[in-house]
Amino acid sequence: MIPISFNYKKASSVDEALSLMTDDAKILGGGHSLIPALKLRLNSVDTLIDISKIENIKGINDNAQSVTVGGGATHASIASNSALAKAAPMMAEAAHTIGDRQVRNMGTIGGSIAHADPAADWPAVLLASDANVVIKNKTGQREVDIDQFFTGFYETALADGEIITAIRIPKTAYNANSVYEKFKQPASRFAIVGIAAAAEMDGNVVKALRIGVTGLAEVAFRPMEVEKELIGKELTEANIDAALGTIANGVSVMGDHYASEKYRTHLAKVYTKRALLRLK
């Protein structure tokens, strides 16, 4: 399998990459979403701008208020990062379930969320973490609240010509108490459902709660009614069961040969419950 011909340009800085941008150019990060699509000729580009050599967007920085994950950080580097393990353990947990060992060594978080596959893991985790996406364009830099980032089926708030340089994960009590539970499609290893849950507890009672759901619908989302229902409550099986009825409210549930809409919805409930029961 061979892609349709394209021009290749290597950028050594984000600014250089932005200066190389044209209307029909695409950014090449780790390449693990884009290259497979190009190979199968499901997609074609005129120009690829390679940002995989830009060192200063690969790092993971532990700051006072947040952990900043470079857009070029690989899944593997996230999986093994100690600051994230403490600040948001669901990040490492999710990173370890992405693709496979080799894919994790190459694929990047920025590339993954720019692609916004509805069954990818990061959207659920970043939604639960209340992350901010740091985006650069020719006119400067902007930050997008994760709740506004995923806008539809393979669609994001990222405009043409923009590059994700970092993702800021706030250091909050709920992120420090967070988990990721995933039911894998056994062939692709993408999520049939993936549930990220982060909670701040006041004793046994939920003080703050964020849940991210991927795989269930055409775009990852937060089941707001479920979150709201559990605030002020203990995470008992009975309370969780009572809250889960609304998990798919307002979303269009996906179904395919492997998992029907009904089954996916059921799995979302089971896996949300499993995630919530693991929170301390």
């Binding site: 090449l28 390679d50 060992r101 060594n105």
Partner: peptide
């Protein structure tokens, strides 16, 4: 690092 060379461009 182990990577899948079918998903890496030679130029990379």
């Amino acid at each position: 690092h182990a990577v899948k060379s079918c998903t890496v461009l030679a130029v990379q």
